[in-house]
Nucleic acid binder design. Structure first.
Length: 358
DNA sequence: GACCCGTGGTC
DNA sequence: TGACCAAGGGT
């Protein structure tokens, strides 16, 4: 008769195999009494939402360097936060990060709430992040469920109900398994297990501390779980982007996108809407640069810029033109010299567009 | 529940 | 190349 999985089995594995991460207090240090900084835990958890550890590391270091305390982040101009976040994606996270910092600094005297419900009331903090902060920063036995936990639990208990229908059951089994002692380490242990051994493809079951009690390992279904509803295919949208270069120094004309929606609050080069059907002739005549006091000679750049967003593919045709230094600037636009471009709040797709024009 | 919201790595 | 995936949240 096989033993049912226990938290201790996994915690012992975690004590030996925990990943060394910039925002993590190692199990050894925890035993020595080192306490995680809730600000660090929160910042890392927001950055890690739907984002890989490798992509987050440098941003996390940079943010802590720029804003060591939550009060510093609360006092920072939103524009600076968007610039520092540029390239990480899901930009509403950055806006909510700033709003959350302001709330904590102003309404909570710089301290994060210590309960799941109190945390989840803050902007950008949902069920997962609230549970993660409560467990990791405040030692509360909250059931932390992310994509890793979903994968591990559906396999461990052979839950064949497809996601997201299976979420309540997953939450329940995770809650039953979460120990009163070391709940934060336990949550991180399950996530480490999912990230390193219980992977989506070709899981390393032979190395797993829970192998003996894993139902999907026994039945051979491990690699087929969790089950998910099929995803829709992404449509392709097209548009044009106009890279205006100031003659003397090749500064690029930029403008701000609207505060909400796709790439909200980020900077961009002027361009057309990204409609499903649009032709190149329309693009040229729709150039929003008619009022700068000069006739511009827009030349198409060879090769189209391709970029994929969450729910559509984009094909951007790039046009470039040199602009006399004495020309005017359209409303809400500014010139950004080449040496300033790295610090602008430019999303990746816009950096691709600008690169294509140089 | 459905849809929106980025990016880079992997197979 | 394309689909999938990654410490999800807001509406």
């Amino acid at each position: 008769m096989k033993t049912s999985p226990s938290a201790n089995e996994l915690l012992e594995w975690y004590d030996r195999h925990a990943r060394d991460l910039p925002w993590r207090v190692s199990p050894e240090d925890r035993r020595l009494g080192v306490v995680p900084d809730p600000y660090h835990v929160w910042l890392s958890e927001i950055m890690l939402q739907q984002t890989t550890v490798a992509a987050v590391k440098d941003y996390y270091i940079k943010f802590l360097s720029l804003w060591p305390r939550v009060e510093d982040l609360a006092a920072a101009p939103e524009e600076d936060v968007m610039k520092a976040w540029a390239g990480l994606g899901y930009y509403s996270r950055a806006r909510n990060l700033k709003r959350c910092a302001e709330t904590v600094a102003d309404l909570h005297e710089g301290r994060f709430p210590e309960t799941v419900s109190g945390l989840q009331a803050l902007p950008g903090i949902g069920p997962y992040t609230a549970a993660a902060i409560a467990a990791i920063a405040f030692d509360q036995p909250a059931a932390v469920v992310d994509g890793n936990v979903e994968r591990v639990m559906t396999r461990l208990y052979e839950i064949t109900t497809p996601l997201p229908e299976a979420k309540p059951e997953i939450k329940a089994v995770m809650a039953a398994l979460t120990p009163e002692a070391r709940p934060g380490d336990f949550a991180q242990a399950v996530m480490d297990l999912g990230a390193t051994l219980c992977t989506p493809k070709r899981p390393a079951c032979s190395l797993c501390p829970w192998m003996a009690g894993c139902a999907a390992r026994a039945s051979g279904l491990a690699e087929t779980l969790p089950r998910k509803a099929p995803k829709k295919t992404k449509p392709t949208r097209t548009g044009a982007a106009f890279v205006a270069l100031r003659a003397s120094d090749k500064a690029v004309m930029l403008r701000r996108r609207p505060p909400k929606g796709l790439l909200g609050g980020m900077s961009e080069v002027p361009g057309t809407e990204w409609t499903v059907e649009a032709d190149e002739a329309t693009f040229v005549h729709s150039a929003p640069l008619q009022d700068i006091g000069a006739t511009l000679d827009w030349r198409p750049v060879t090769g189209v810029v391709r970029h994929t967003f969450t729910h559509f593919h984009l094909e951007l045709t790039i046009f470039r033109a040199m602009v006399p230094d004495n020309a005017g600037l359209p409303e809400n636009c500014w010139w950004s010299p080449p040496q300033d471009l790295p610090d602008e709040a430019l999303p990746t797709v816009m950096r691709k567009a600008i690169d294509a024009a140089f």
